[in-house]
Design a protein around this nucleic acid. Structure first.
Lengths: 198, 198
DNA sequence: CCATGCGATATCGAATAAGACATCAAGTAA
DNA sequence: TTACTTGATGTCTTATTCGATATCGCATGG
């Protein structure tokens, strides 16, 4: 079924994804069955307000009625806040960084210097300590995707450089803008074969 | 039934009332049965999102998901806009002014000079030409309520003066801030026994 | 290969919103 | 009084969410 509330539906879904929690976790928090959440996110059901509020609350979102005149202003505020929100550190989101670390370590290409790889790895170590924004995490994911596609075989040095540059930029951003608090408990460890600090 | 969405419910109800439209009118606009709107406004039903959106749209309101961090800012914006919104001119809202005019004309009290009454009446004439904000209209309603309560008998001159002062203030505000457009068509006429312009 | 976690689906019964009426009491205007 | 409007309720029937539970295919990691 399609009903005229797509933006709410997709907003809730992306909110969940940004928090990096699964439908089952959200289900536990909100007290709404996972099956129901799935149906809801796919627009299969015309959700009731009480359920919507429950789900929203579990995601730190409130439902507001905004006058048409004000929605531009409101959305810009919301956008600004959302953008600057740190991604909640979970096993899942940190896995994106960990995964990239793992893959990079496996790269053995004649066209890419191990020095360049080391540099990127050290940037990732910084990302691990601070909490990157969801926006920044996406760059990590893109890097992962690219590496997955090329299967680490014919890795184009140009492409690699581009992604590496992106990571470096993020590292700089993070170091300057992220709160200098270290993670309460690193969800994973980087040190399996090296141990130098950046 | 009570479910945790009171603020939405009451917001929608007051929005409708501020527009001065009846449940039946809203029903026609939104395509939702009047009975359903009544039950909804009383919190008797757990409304579905599609209905909520329909009702909201008919009232120029959009549903937004706002991060908890942002709701203070958002609400302040919404408040600011709502407060300064011109009341939609309908038979109902203009009746508030007309009613006050009628009641005032009927006042015959030894404690209140007819001059004071005349003055207020002339202010009301200005209010009729311009569109007062909903906030300002409320002062008119309050005056009405007070007069209704006292049944025009033992009207306290102090109280009268206070309300009259409020109306005068509004008249000044309106003359300065309201758009100098006259109403497309005055929903009612003031001139039944006098015709002097202010 | 096996275990795990993910989102999507299916089924079923119970609860309930929705829709289409019809009133009704209270207030209000003529 | 009479006529009209408004919001609230009642009563049907139908449609659909909801909740509980199980399962599926898929991807990932060991």
């Amino acid at each position: 079924m399609r009903y005229a509330a797509d933006h709410i539906v997709s907003a809730l879904k992306t909110a969940r994804e940004k928090k990096g929690i699964s439908q089952r976790e959200l289900s536990a928090k909100a007290g709404v069955p996972q099956a129901q959440i799935s149906r809801f996110e796919n627009g299969d059901v015309d959700i009731r307000l009480s359920s919507l509020v429950s789900l929203g609350r579990a995601l730190d979102l409130e439902i507001e009625l905004v006058p048409r005149q004000a929605i531009a202003a409101v959305e810009s505020i919301v956008r600004a806040i959302t953008r600057s929100e740190r991604a909640i550190q979970t096993t899942r989101t940190s896995n994106d960084v960990a995964k990239l670390v793992r893959t990079l370590k496996a790269v053995r290409s004649p066209d890419i210097s191990s020095l360049a790889i080391e540099k990127t790895l050290s940037h990732l170590r910084v990302l691990e300590r601070f909490q990157p924004t969801t926006e920044q995490l996406e760059a990590v994911k893109r890097f992962n995707d690219t590496l997955a596609k090329t299967k680490r075989l014919d890795l184009d040095p140009e492409v690699f450089a581009k992604h590496a540059k992106a990571i470096e930029l993020i590292r700089t951003q993070v170091a300057y803008t992220a709160p200098p608090v270290s993670l309460p408990e690193p969800a994973y460890a980087l040190d399996d074969e090296e141990d130098d600090d950046a």
